[in-house]
């Protein structure tokens, strides 16, 4: 088992990665970069799950959870890229702030 003070470093690191991802999602306007920011956020989740699995070492829940997150993130990226592609074919841009035809 990792000592408590070491695992807290992982908590801080994963919090930082998550914050970076969230900031990237909110501040960048390129859809591809926003997609990458979401992946970054999910990877922060994975890091947290795997590192705390060492603290709760009785079972493998955290690691198994991380596998599921990876698999679902891959599926999500596939659907997301398909949506971006079909949007790009119509509009010729991947800037999310130009997606404003639905506003009045």
């Amino acid at each position: 088992m990792l000592p408590g003070s070491v695992v807290e470093h992982y908590l801080a690191l994963s919090g930082a990665i998550f914050t970076l991802g969230a900031m990237g999602f909110l501040m960048r306007r390129n859809v591809l970069i926003q997609l990458m920011s979401i992946e970054l956020m999910l990877n922060a989740v994975n890091l947290l799950l795997v590192s705390y699995n060492r603290v709760h070492a009785g079972n493998m829940t955290g690691q198994v959870f991380a596998f599921f997150v990876i698999a679902v993130a891959a599926a999500e990226a596939a659907v997301g890229l398909a949506i971006v592609l079909s949007y790009f074919r119509i509009r010729g841009t991947v800037q999310s702030d130009e997606a404003d035809s639905l506003r009045h």
Partner: peptide, 12 residues
Amino acid sequence: PRAGEAALKYFL
């Protein structure tokens, strides 16, 4: 374009 935009927004 409206449907593509709606899908994009909801997805993001």
